[in-house]
Simulated scan of single mutants.
Amino acid sequence: MNRSIWAWVRLLGGVGILAVLFWRLGTGAFLDGLRVIDAGTLGAAFAIGVATTVLCAWRWCLVARGLGLRLSLRTAVADYYKALFINAALPGGVLGDVDRAVQHGREEGDVGRSVRAVVLERTAGQIVLLSVGLTVLLTVPSPVLTQLRAHGADVAVAAGTLAVAAVVLVIAVGRLRSGASRWARAARTAVAEIRAGLLARRNWPGIVLASTAVLAGHLATFVVAARAAGSQASLLRLAPLMLLALLAMALPLNVGGWGPREGVTAWAFGAAGLSAAQGLTIAVVYGLFAFVAALPGLAVILSRAVARRRATARVGITVQPQVTGSGRSAAAVLEILPVRPGTAAPVRELVGSGA
């Protein structure tokens, strides 16, 4: 029941944000997002999406292999595309990641470890995004930073709350590690897998490189969206705004990725002295770019469905009687055609005998 309530909270949160944007800015900014897109901008966004997806899949391979799981880059790319499409097409924005984690876990015989590999892979990307985002926001002069400073008291309270929570967490983890409870074992397992999956010498350089390149790809897509929407602001002025939008996308209150991204982008552009409506249009264009970039995932889903259907059609059962010298049936042979494509020759099994 708690999971169901949380799912509704996430869905209604995203719908609520979009409803407020409709109310305050009207539908024009959303419709403009459809009008400004052309074949050139779509092609550029799609090409960037291919590069970022391959890099994300490579990062997943590094983490999974660090945890002792087998995962080829080709399979990872296909599964990642499928996950991106599911995330973009369904509410919540995480169902695709759940699907690829569970599917890979079933293939490897360890769903729990596969789920943790996906969590670590996504966490690595968020850590790089958070690090770069905070660095840019605190060092690049921007009216947005001025607005944040104007709410310094609220920020201080939030930071203090997080600090207290961090201290409590450290104390709790320390006690858990000293005990022999199930939670203590889980904490030790998590620490060991973080070291093996993320911090191992053979892994972390590639993970940092992939995560940084993926972030650069997302920013490049935002730039293409901004130029398509008619914004001529410099990259230095756009960078803090785009990073805020990307940080907002990590919030679990969305409908297929829509909601926080549009709300934060509209607010950030307004706070920066630009048009809030234009910021909303840019966010809409980015969302459409992201959906188009995820469309190969639909092809993966359809091709696998066709392959399963063909494999099922190849399944057949033939009973061949074995006749004795007197002409009486002594046994029957069950012939089963292969269920999966690529399986070896049909299996024959003696299933019965009689007079």
Rank of each mutant, 00 (worst) to 15 (best):
R3D: 15
W6V: 14
G16C: 05
A19Q: 13
A29Q: 13
A29E: 03
A39W: 11
L42E: 12
A44N: 12
A45Q: 01
V54H: 13
V54N: 13
C56W: 15
W58H: 12
L62I: 12
L67S: 10
L69T: 08
S72G: 14
L73V: 14
R74Y: 11
A78M: 09
D79N: 14
A83M: 04
V94A: 12
V98R: 01
R100P: 07
R100V: 04
V102H: 08
H104T: 07
R106S: 08
V111H: 01
S114V: 02
S114H: 04
V118F: 06
E121C: 01
G125P: 02
V140I: 15
P143H: 07
A150Y: 01
V164P: 01
V164L: 13
V164Q: 08
V164H: 00
I171C: 08
A172T: 14
V173N: 03
R175E: 05
W183V: 12
R185A: 04
I194P: 11
R195P: 02
A200Q: 13
A213H: 06
L215E: 10
A233V: 13
R237G: 14
L238N: 01
P240E: 02
P240K: 00
L243E: 00
L251Q: 05
N254E: 03
N254A: 10
G259M: 01
G263L: 03
T265L: 13
A268F: 05
F269L: 02
G270F: 07
Q278K: 09
V306F: 02
R314A: 07
T318N: 14
G325D: 14
G342E: 09
